[in-house]
Amino acid sequence: MPDPRARRGIRYPWAALLTAAAAAVLAGAASVTAIGEWVADAPQRILALLGFRPDPLTGLVHPPHATTVRLVLASADGDALDRAIGDFLQERKAPAPSSGRKVIAVDGKTLRGTRTANRPATALIAAMTHSGEVLAQRQIDGKSNEIPAFVPLLNGIDLTDALITADALHTQHDHAAYLHERGAHCLAVVKRNHPGLHERIRRHPWREIRLDHAERARAHHRNEIRRLKTAASAHIDYPHARQALQVVRWRRDLGTGKLTIERIYLVTSLPPGAADGSELAAWIRGHWRIENQLDHVRDRTFHADASHIRTRHLPRVMAGPRNLAIGVHRQDGHTNIAAALRRTARDHLRPLTTLGLA
């Protein structure tokens, strides 16, 4: 991480300040004020492990003021911070089984609390494994959308034999060609924003195609049936596409009795036989769960949407430590992130142990 501060007057090491902020967020700090309070309450041993230097006269380690923490985070390079966090999570994660495939979801998020009368809300795009770790994140240009950020987002990730899932916005010919060049596969939703492709897939003789997977579920006060069919095709007007998919979802509300039927179409570059119906269905559901695994946790647990931080790079930078906390706790087997944060907050040493500093 580059240090943007002028050399004159530097009292605290740059790495120590960023590490302290990350440790505080791991312990549940949801704001810059809370980060400053966590650092101020840290014992001498913890401050030394974080990298703060003792006073040469007294031998005591003085914690930085909350204002110092705020200024440091506001001046940090958000993209560089996210790259460092993504590299850390990839190195920390245990190797996946040789039979498993890396599955990465690409999705965008708008920080609604950052909107002002003169400036649009800060928008981010993230690449996240289906198990819940954010591997990369970038800020979206305020005058553009997620599409131009797709390639720069994935450039720093090893995509060899990975499967990238994305919503209809990223069902772009250039994206499919890029993933093929990187040795990756795609699984993308097709909607009416691509009318020709959507109509061609919709007109497949789906009634005559055998069922590949079906399942029933009951959640959120409704019964749901999901059915998946796949059709191998060499004539899909999408680069390197090998199969078209249809998902039909029946949902019945248990309170009103209302029945809703939804048909969703997708394309994938995976050849027939590379994955069975249950795997494809799990990957499709896994992409839809990204809102629960990342966006919902950031909004409800860290109150990201309620935050009105707007100073310089702070809205962008604060998303990085939150992703780190969510990713690390998920890697450690915690499914309830709020409970994991409370547990970590009960001992100042626990965040450092989690980060490998103690």
Rank of each mutant, 00 (worst) to 15 (best):
P2R: 15
P2S: 15
D3F: 04
R7G: 12
R8H: 02
I10E: 12
Y12P: 08
A16F: 05
A23S: 13
A23D: 06
G28V: 09
S31P: 11
A40F: 04
A40W: 06
A42L: 10
A42S: 14
P43E: 13
Q44R: 13
R45W: 11
R45N: 14
L50Q: 08
F52G: 02
P56H: 06
L57G: 13
A66G: 04
T67F: 03
T68H: 06
T68V: 09
A74K: 09
D77W: 08
R83T: 14
R92E: 12
R92Y: 13
A94S: 11
A96H: 01
R101A: 03
V103T: 01
V106K: 04
D107V: 11
T116G: 14
T116R: 11
N118S: 09
L124I: 12
T129V: 00
H130D: 05
S131Y: 03
L135Q: 10
Q139C: 10
L154P: 12
N155G: 09
D158R: 10
L159E: 10
T160F: 09
L163R: 03
L163D: 04
I164P: 01
A176C: 11
Y178T: 03
H180E: 14
E181M: 01
A184N: 03
H185P: 07
H185N: 15
C186Q: 14
V190D: 04
H194M: 10
P195I: 07
H198A: 14
R200K: 12
D212I: 00
R218D: 02
H220Y: 12
H221N: 15
R222H: 04
E224W: 03
I225R: 14
K229D: 00
K229F: 00
K229V: 02
H235V: 09
H240N: 15
A244I: 11
W250G: 01
L266M: 10
S269W: 08
S278A: 13
E279G: 01
W283H: 03
R285V: 01
G286C: 06
I290K: 05
E291M: 02
D295N: 13
R298C: 08
A306K: 10
P321V: 13
L324E: 12
L324T: 12
I326D: 02
H334M: 01
T335I: 00
A339P: 00
L341F: 01
R343N: 06
